[in-house]
Design a binder for these strands. Structure first.
Lengths: 361, 361
DNA sequence: CCTTGTTGCTCATACGTAGTAGCACCGCAT
DNA sequence: ATGCGGTGCTACTACGTATGAGCAACAAGG
């Protein structure tokens, strides 16, 4: 009964049954509140008493084995939470996921066992897929191995992916920050400030989220008839070439749309080195949510918490109805005003460059 | 085979067995690598082939039911992660826990299902203890209901508690930041700066962590023969009475040891209102790790990540050996130098108060 | 008295795995 | 021929639960 000598067997339904003088099935029926199993109030009471005196607690594992749901939702991050540079990157998603999980009476499983101790995590390890513990899972982060995703989908396991990720033949649903629209909106904002000649400064990384940003930028630029002078746009380099900087210096390019805070910082340094200022000479917008420690960039906000919540909701739908449609969800990113976009006229006024106004060639 | 119409039954050992032309037991033996079960290489190979073609993955749930460990470690926070004022409070612990879990090949279960949607979480809900899913659990946070802890311990469930928590008749192990020693060390530091008359400003909250701080302070003060002039020390008020402030103003008290950053900030405002400065007139040390946004307080660092790691290690020990000793662990807190402690002489020199030097009555 | 229906349960089985016990067979020594 | 030990498996059961099928008892209706 006590803890004195380690752990003793927990009470099970058959123990309860014995004490109450009924069969195990009767106990099960009372517990799972089976409506159409006529157990009279008196017996029912006896069973509940027995449960109380034995301190019986149902075993969720056994329950699940019998085909019921575990009420566990998995969270698989392809990298460990901890070594991530921006501490809050995963955490913000996790908060939303946790919040919604609590509301829907689910517990979360953080899959960490498949890590190599250093960071990278796999779904399949030793031919074992631990995700099956959970009724379904939210996948998160940069998955290096798309075959794993394909396989998981192929097995019919319910999962959603945070962030767009396309895998041929595995049309799993993704919860996607709408970078396309946000990028377009930012271009529009710059346009409204009079800018007509842009440079796009890209990261060296590839991947769907970046494609979306680039797509959004490209189509907005085209639609507005804007002159884009990105030399590195289609190349693999990080794009901060001298040619681009020359464009800023001679005033032929007045606005920069950059993919990351990191690059934005680099850009700022290089501009400063040439005696140019932001937004005095060049307006800059960043296509990710910046940490905001130094410069207050004009940027966008990825609604991580909300995305986490949506992911849980979509996942639960999939778990409950395996035949439900599995469409991806786009989530709007708010474009946030900072201090790095100014109108072209102001730029010309306060600028030290000798260039013509924004519409010049 | 495909995902086209929802989920189909996953392959199990009996399927593999049928395909390989052996019995289910044989498959189990090959999988669990049972050494003393003579399965010749040829059969073994056939089974492995069948596993590969069927894409069989072992079911951890069933495995557990059979008495094996789940390799799941629970994390139970008595409040939700998210609404906590200091976002990183739980998160830092979680990082350590995750780190160590990954290294020891465990997955984590975040118990959120027992919440009321608003924050407070219970261990037992509807007479069900979900913790049993995990092999053992790390408990974390302010547990309002000690009976739950007693019951959990009574059932023999393996768990550790982060932070000291004493429950009569349930001597479970705790991982404890050594506030006693840190508090004593801070008193010593002030002593070394020439301070001889102290005030202790306490929080209105009760609980073991605060008792430890008060104990440490009290014993250090006694041991060093220091004059303590805390009027509110034993009272329930937050202790920032006018009497204390008078003591600072007339120079009869030169140092304050306060329990929280919140109170430290209040103290600073009140001192400023009386024309006193920190550390010019009063030296202040804080007995928790401050956020560091404004003032750089002399304070202490709670090694949260390390505590998380230790918790996991202790827990695993308990899981593996139910009869192992269950002692608590003290973890040293580093005392960190800030900008709010100065030596008494300097205080007198730059101070505007008319009081005598620190040893005066 | 026989049918029909209802109440209050119990029986048996399945879920997927691990492990204990043991069976059939073979080779070899006695 | 008989015993013995080893090889290569299989049979069976337990883990704790949920559930379809069904059975005994009784009541009501004919």
């Amino acid at each position: 009964m006590t803890n004195s000598t380690g752990r003793q067997r927990a009470a099970r339904q058959s123990d309860v049954a014995a004490l109450a003088g009924v069969s195990q099935s009767a106990v099960s029926r009372v517990i799972s509140g089976d409506a159409d199993s006529r157990i009279p109030e008196e017996t029912r009471k006896r069973i509940l008493d027995a449960i109380a005196t034995l301190g019986y607690v149902p075993n969720p594992i056994a329950r699940n084995l019998r085909g019921k749901r575990t009420q566990l939702l998995g969270v698989h991050t392809f990298e460990a939470l901890f070594p991530n540079a921006r501490e809050s990157f995963y955490f913000q998603f996790l908060l939303g996921i946790e919040e919604r999980a609590e509301e829907t009476r689910h517990d979360l499983v953080l899959f960490s066992s498949t890590g190599d101790g250093g960071g990278a995590r796999k779904i399949y390890r030793d031919e074992t897929n631990r995700l099956t513990i959970a009724d379904g899972s939210v996948l998160l982060g940069m998955s290096p191995d798309r075959d794993e995703l394909a396989r998981l989908w192929h097995e019919g396991y319910p999962f959603v992916h945070i962030g767009r990720r396309e895998v041929l033949g595995a049309p799993f649903p993704c919860i996607i920050p709408d970078y396309r629209r946000a990028a377009a909106e930012i271009v529009r904002r710059l346009f409204d400030h009079g800018h007509r000649s842009f440079a796009f400064v890209r990261e060296s990384i590839e991947g769907e989220p970046y494609e979306d940003r680039r797509d959004g930028y490209r189509s907005a630029v085209t639609e507005l008839g804007i002159r884009d002078s990105s030399p590195g746009f289609l190349s693999d380099e990080s794009g901060l070439s001298d040619a681009v900087l020359d464009g800023f210096a001679d005033g032929s390019v007045t606005a920069a749309v950059v993919e990351s805070e990191r690059i934005a910082e680099t850009l700022r340094e290089r501009l400063t080195a040439r005696g140019l200022s932001i937004p005095g000479d060049v307006s800059v917008a960043v296509l990710e949510d910046t940490a905001g420690a130094g410069v207050r960039w004009d940027d966008l906000r990825i609604p991580r918490k909300q995305i986490g919540r949506i992911a849980v909701d979509r996942l639960i739908e999939m778990v409950e109805d395996p035949d439900a449609p599995r469409e991806s969800v786009l989530v709007a990113c708010e474009v946030v005003e900072g201090e790095t976009i100014a109108s072209v006229r102001a730029a010309v006024r306060s600028g030290s460059a000798a260039g013509p106004d924004g519409s010049a060639r």
